[in-house]
Structures are given as C-alpha cells and as structure tokens.
Nucleic acid binder design. Structure first.
Length: 364
DNA sequence: AGCATTTGACCTCG
DNA sequence: CGAGGTCAAATGCT
C-alpha cells in the first residue's frame, strides 16, 4: 500500500491548504475590526501550518516515516504514574477496592492525563468534538461550578470486556461554544479495530445521542449534505488543539509515552481525508466511534481526519512540549518520534492496536 | 433483549 | 463541607 505516501502527501497538502486558508482569514480579519488577538492567533496558525509542511518535507526526504503524524499532532501522552505503572490509575474506584490501598496514592492525578482543546468552526454549524477513533461510553455528566456547560464523563466501551480504563471528559468552553475541551485520562488497552480503517462495525451502532445541553447535536442522516459539507469542511474546519500533558511531574519523559488515541487512529485515517473528501459517498462512516455522544454526529471520517490534520496549536502546560515541537520543526531527530518508538513494552497490551506500525508495514 | 444514555446519589479529595 | 468524579438504577433506543 502506498498509504504512507498518500498520507504524507495528503498531510502536506492539507497543511499548505490550511496555511492558505488561514492567510485568507487573516486578510479578512485585517479588513474587519477583529481583535488583535485573533489576528495574532491566525498568524500563529499560519506559521505553524507551514512549519509542519516543511517538517513533512524534511521527513519525506529522510525516509518518510509515518510517525510524521506524531509530529503533526505533536502530542504525547506522558505517563506520570508515581510508580511508573500505568495501572496505578485510580479512576476506577471499584478496581481500587480490589487492591490493597494502604500504599496506593490517593491522588487522582497519578494517571496519564492530557488535554485536547478542540475547536471546530463550520459554517454550517456541523460541529462538535470529533470522534477520536475510540468507542466511548458516557457514564456521567456533571455541572461544573462556574462553567456554563456541564462536563460529560466517558469511559472506554470496552472497559468491562477488555479492562480498558481509559476515560475522557468533554466540556464545552464557556467563552467559545465551538471549543470543546477533552481531557483524556488513562491509556487505551483495548483492541478497537474500527478506528484503523473504514470497515464494518463489529459492534452495534449506538443510538444517536440526544440533544443535550452540553454539545450541539446534529442529525446524522445528512449523507448528501455531508458529502457536500465534507469538502467544505476539509477547508473550513479550524481545529485548534491544545494539549496539555498534565501530570508531568516526571519530566524525564519516562518510556510510557504514547500518543492519545485519536492520534493513533488518525495515523491511518488521515490518509483518507483528502482522498475521501472527493468521494465521500463511496464509503460509510461505519468506523466511527459510536459511543462518544458528543462526537457521533460528527462522525464522517473525512471530517475527523481533516480536522485532525488541521491542528494548529500545541502547547505544553509547562512549555516543554512547545520546545519539543519547536525542535521538531528544525530537526528530523525529534524526541517525539523517539517517544513514539520508546513505548514501554510493558505498556503494550497484547491486544494493543499498534496501528502506526501496521500502517508502515501495511504493504503486504 | 441488549446496550447506551440519563441522572440523582454516593464517594473522594482538598 | 463543597466540588468533582463515579456508580448504578431507570429509561430509551434499536
């Protein structure tokens, strides 16, 4: 398969297109009375976009590693378990009860946590945090003090069957309802195949989430509309993503670093973004995550992929990541790429869907 | 019937 | 004690 090539080309094109679009936006902003802040943000994004494009080119010239995706998204999950064990996450109290808790830290922040800030602006209002490639099941919702919108709590659909303890929180931003803050906690140890390629969903399709007050829901059944939109979205989506690898108390970058689920998923899916954008109807959005209520309606792969391909802003909570990203733009020897390969074998569940490698070896 | 979501209650932590 | 996080029964959907 030439997915790798396609993927890089797609990514490159996306970045360039994005840069152009952002430049256009900036021009529009120049004429308007928009704030200096928004203009500054656009400039940042443009620069970021072109840096990524250059980076891709560099990588192409140096072997074209599929891990460019990691560079693009530039996010790493950092395991911060105090004992270095990813299993020390205590988000599951029931699980805790089975263990001798006498010595286990009671802190919540012992599990790998990272934050995505996803901003989607679509002229047609089809928006929301996109699918991240995993199946999530909502298990709670909570009104947060000082927040306009409630916070939703999701856990992996395969929590019970595969003991996957990954969770995520979705909260809509107060200021900008188009921004969704996604807090991922824990790592997926489940084997979810649907996020790797468009293939029939082995699991039952979820019911469409109801229109709750948290997230804007859209009707799923706009296939024609979606086909039309998808192309627009490819160009119009603006996804700002900020990732904070919180809990980075251990800044030594222990070898547990992997990437958030959506990055892994995107790795392959992204290749479809531009390819599929012109041919959306040829495949169904069947491999979308079914359970993330906030994302279901936004489930067409090109949407997700293009939006993920249009990631602009990456900030580490302690600016370290920013430096890393920065370094990436000027060196092919990125620490992030290293991290991609430095996944602790212990971390690798036998069922771990190691798409990245599959992807690169997918030529059979 | 089986699975997902909703939602109030309960638990933990600061 | 309050806020945030999780549980679990009720409910809804397919």
């Amino acid at each position: 398969m030439e997915n790798s090539l396609n993927w890089e080309q797609s990514t490159l094109i996306n970045e360039l297109i994005q840069g152009m679009e952002l430049a256009k936006q900036l021009r529009a902003h120049m004429n308007s009375t928009s704030s200096a802040g928004s203009r500054e943000m656009l400039i940042q994004r443009i620069l970021s976009s072109y840096e990524k494009a250059l980076l891709i080119l560099k990588w192409n010239g140096s072997g074209g590693q599929p891990q460019v995706s990691a560079l693009i998204t530039g996010v790493l999950e950092s395991s911060v378990s105090g004992d270095g064990s990813p299993w020390s996450e205590d988000c599951d109290r029931g699980f805790k009860d089975q263990q001798d808790q006498s010595d286990v830290s009671k802190k919540r922040k012992v599990l790998p946590t990272w934050t995505d800030q996803v901003r989607i602006c679509s002229e047609n209002g089809l928006e929301g945090p996109m699918d991240d490639g995993y199946s999530w099941r909502k298990y709670g919702q909570k009104d947060i003090l000082g927040a306009k919108y409630p916070r939703s709590y999701y856990r992996c659909t395969y929590r019970s069957t595969q003991n996957c303890r990954a969770t995520k929180q979705v909260q809509r931003s107060d200021d900008d309802p188009t921004i969704f803050e996604l807090v991922y906690r824990g790592r997926h140890t489940c084997n979810q195949i649907h996020h790797t390629a468009p293939q029939p969903q082995p699991q039952p399709q979820p019911q469409p989430p109801s229109l709750d007050k948290q997230e804007p829901k859209q009707n799923h059944h706009h296939n024609n509309h979606q086909q039309q939109q998808s192309q627009n979205m490819l160009f119009n989506f603006r996804t700002s993503l900020r990732v904070n690898t919180e809990d980075l108390d251990n800044q030594e970058m222990n070898p547990h670093c992997t990437f958030p689920s959506w990055m892994r998923g995107e790795n392959q899916n992204f290749a479809f973004s531009t390819l599929a954008a012109n041919n959306l109807g040829s495949y169904s959005p069947s491999f979308v995550s079914p359970a993330t209520s906030g994302t279901n309606y936004f489930s067409t792969p090109p949407c997700r992929m293009s939006s993920f391909g249009l990631i602009h802003n990456l900030q580490h909570s302690e600016s370290d990541l920013t430096e890393i990203i920065s370094a990436n733009t000027s060196a092919t020897n990125s620490p992030i790429v290293d991290l991609d390969f430095s996944i602790d074998p212990v971390e690798l569940d036998p069922n771990f869907p190691f798409d990245t490698l599959d992807f690169s070896n997918n030529s059979t």
